[in-house]
Design a protein around this nucleic acid. Structure first.
Lengths: 253, 253
DNA sequence: ATGCCTTTGTGAACGCGTGCACAAAGATTG
DNA sequence: CAATCTTTGTGCACGCGTTCACAAAGGCAT
């Protein structure tokens, strides 16, 4: 991801492991659903199933937050929703700016899940002058030239980059210069950021390639035999790219 | 994620660790860029920097694929591009079906990164009869009723779900029944799938919440002080069962 | 050929994350 | 109030992933 150190390097946050933090939103979602159905309490087993995790893992995760359960009973849903929300910082308002209002940027602007939990689309920014003023999802698009001011005026600390890959690093630099310290990057690029800035990436292409890898293996297993699952042979000693490993003829590019 | 066992459980694929597989696309991207600039070879150090990882990690990753480098020189770019592409199964064509053609689904259909590496949008499917026939990104939308046939006819083994959360599980079940064995899920739901089916999820909301957590910590650290990561104040004292914790007043929902 | 210099490939140590299994804690029933 | 039953919280062990550090390998100059 980012060259300038990606996540929290070592500094194990508040004693809460990164892996646990990543699961808290999952628990929160399941708990919110229970809350809407007015379910008063849940056992770790039930909640774990709903969140798709192991119950022991869930209990250990919660133990990092404190002892919020009651033995023999389970966890109080409302109480837990609040505790997790607070821990995640969802009890406050997070103005978010989306830069790059193409298909994806527009889709995100319209995405309901945004507004739901403390996140508010505070600004839409695009480099195309023709888009300036055009409302997307009810919010007028502003021009990149004003990026600095927009970020400052709205107190934006979280930026979302949905620009083409070529523009991503530049936009990132400008966001950081303007005061943004957390970036969600949808552009297929490795962003380089200074220490103290968090970058998370969402990369469709990578996800598909990972699926393709497993898919290929599944297919290869059937045709057990010699080949594939086990890549035939590696390059041959000698001659550069030769004899056996063979060279690419055409590449998917 | 999935109840029915998510990824490859134990069966360490072909000896290639999951973490390594997840990084291969990253290397491939960096290598492709080098290839386009006609760079003949790269050292692990250079490539690692370009991919945003540690050089030792990169070398170890490559060692799982075989010994494709030359000591004292580095790696042959073209050769490595080919080897990784082959390992990821990118030398073959992967027809993909997108189910749920709303803002996000349409954005993905238009996304260029799709077609680039062996992936081809073979079908767009939506439950809205009004959309049937309407072309999106040059591909006519088909109705959910024909899902089975569409998947079979096109030999689709990878499905992308961009429906509202309520419809996700049902769509997932139908995809799996039709023969899909890999699913990329954009709906904020925990999907339950049978053994042998891989599910990867992309969840915008979760990513933002993780960023918010770290953002909150950063803000809290400045205001060092006694309390907490240092959320100003928590809800009102008193209330429910909180010796300390206290209860929620209003929740972001 | 010989020696030097660069870069790979990997053995070994370490730390994080996961899951088991159980003791402690509280509710509940008689 | 005592016995029983349920469910939490966690000590412990194990395995994966990361990183260091270095020997082996190959190119290149002399």
């Amino acid at each position: 991801m980012a060259t300038g150190r990606t996540h929290r390097p070592a500094t194990r946050s508040r004693g809460i492991p990164e892996a646990t933090v990543a699961r808290l939103p999952l628990y929160l979602r399941a708990l919110t659903a229970l809350s809407e159905r007015s379910v008063p309490t849940v056992s770790s087993e039930e909640l774990a199933t709903a969140a798709g995790v192991n119950s022991a893992k869930l209990r250990k995760d919660f133990s990092y937050l404190g002892s919020y359960g009651t033995r023999g009973v389970g966890y109080d849903v409302e109480y837990l929703v609040y505790q997790i929300s607070r821990e995640l910082g969802l009890t406050q308002d997070w103005p978010v700016a989306i830069v790059g209002i193409g298909n994806l940027g527009a889709a995100l602007a319209n995405y309901g899940g945004f507004a739901s939990r403390g996140f508010r689309v505070a600004a839409l920014i695009d480099a195309d002058p023709a888009m300036a003023g055009t409302p997307v999802a009810g919010i007028p698009v502003q021009h990149t030239d004003d990026l600095d001011r927009i970020i400052s005026d709205n107190g934006v600390s979280i930026g979302v980059i949905t620009t083409p890959p070529g523009a991503a690093q530049q936009v990132c630099d400008r966001l950081v210069a303007a005061g943004v310290t957390s970036i969600l990057n949808f552009a297929p690029t490795v962003l380089s950021v200074p220490e103290g800035v968090d970058v998370r990436k969402v990369d469709l292409s990578i996800e598909l390639q990972i699926l393709a890898f497993h898919e290929q293996r599944k297919a290869g297993e059937d045709a057990s035999g010699a080949d594939e699952g086990a890549p035939p042979m590696r390059a041959t000693p000698n001659g550069r790219k030769g004899p056996d490993g063979d060279m690419p003829a055409v590449m998917p590019a």
